[in-house]
Design a protein around this nucleic acid. Sequence first.
DNA 1: TTTTGTTTTAACCAAATGGTTAAACTACAT
DNA 2: ATGTAGTTTAACCATTTGGTTAAAACAAAA
Lengths: 204, 204
Amino acid sequence: MVKKDKDASTQERILLAAKKVFVGKGMAGARMQDIADEAGINKALLHYYFKNKEQLFEKIFQEAATLLFPKLNIIFDSDLPLFEKIEKFAEEYITVMMLNPFLPLFVLNEITRDPNNFVKKIWTGDKPHPQKLMQQIDKEVKKGTIKKISAVQLLMNLTAMIIFPFVARPMYQLTIGINEKEFRAIMEERKTLVPKFIIDSIRK
Amino acid sequence: MVKKDKDASTQERILLAAKKVFVGKGMAGARMQDIADEAGINKALLHYYFKNKEQLFEKIFQEAATLLFPKLNIIFDSDLPLFEKIEKFAEEYITVMMLNPFLPLFVLNEITRDPNNFVKKIWTGDKPHPQKLMQQIDKEVKKGTIKKISAVQLLMNLTAMIIFPFVARPMYQLTIGINEKEFRAIMEERKTLVPKFIIDSIRK
DNA sequence: TTTTGTTTTAACCAAATGGTTAAACTACAT
DNA sequence: ATGTAGTTTAACCATTTGGTTAAAACAAAA
């Protein structure tokens, strides 16, 4: 059997290229030729590795979703006290997304386009389940440790403040005129700022 | 001269249909045939009213952007005290978006796909300018009226908590299992909850 | 009734696009 | 040297899609 490993295994280069093109243009806007070009190969070879666009897309999308979602549950289900859980969530999640700043919009898009397909093909059993965290919030409210707030609302506030900046980055860059470097710095600061902001708001 | 006004002026029906299809599938994913079908007409008539896809898309997109953005500046530039400004912003903005819940994702997408084209063709002079609000924040911080926080960060928190739920609705529906009606109720509550949440956090 | 703008039908065109095929070439492993 | 997997070239195919065209039907104003 013969195995060439030219550069970074053509297959790897294709996946890299496909990720870039799909994330940038979406499934509908992406062209197989774009992917081939980006990978520095030709269409024939692209199809030699991947039967068709759909299969390739699903591979990319699954990769993206598995990168974004599964770490959530580890934090959601951990036994940390509420405030620490919030801190850890922000810290870890922003770290992950700073490595893949375009993934959130990409994934949100595809979920929106076809939620059922998403559930079937991507969340095969292990979707995020914030229920434990939500119960924890309810419990703290009942104990009177924190101000009264519904768990859903608090969860929305938390996730919104963490994820949205990545989704709206170009808008922020256009309106308040921040560059790439400044954006990174801001997001770095948010790792601790967001938890503090939340805790300051709900602490009694 | 002859003017028929069958139903709701075919042109209006086309724009309605185009909005639905474009917002749902994006520029690349939308098909002229889809739009014709949705409008209950045929392709020939569609092109009788609109030269081509691009022109139609731009009309829709401009409409969407003008709906989402321009009211911002009125609030941004008003002379209200900070807390009231925050309250008004949340109230009015959530109201607008509840009437067009899919617009935010649509607009964010197109800004991301091609920021320059967006600036050229959509923001011809009157883009959102939160600068005055940001100065106001800085001033309050200096006066010591509110806790120390950078204006950008506070602005991000505010916009994120207001806009993100609309962008991520399908995700929330899948993970915490809320239906359409519940979502509306939650967003209704957020009109006052978000300002309260913020003010509780930054008030000294 | 004639005119004029609207709408349908239906065929058609050209370009883009996903995908295929076959032949030839390359480089490595045996 | 030979076989095999990887790769290129280049032509090709079928389908989709944006867009056009021409003729006829329609509806209302003049």
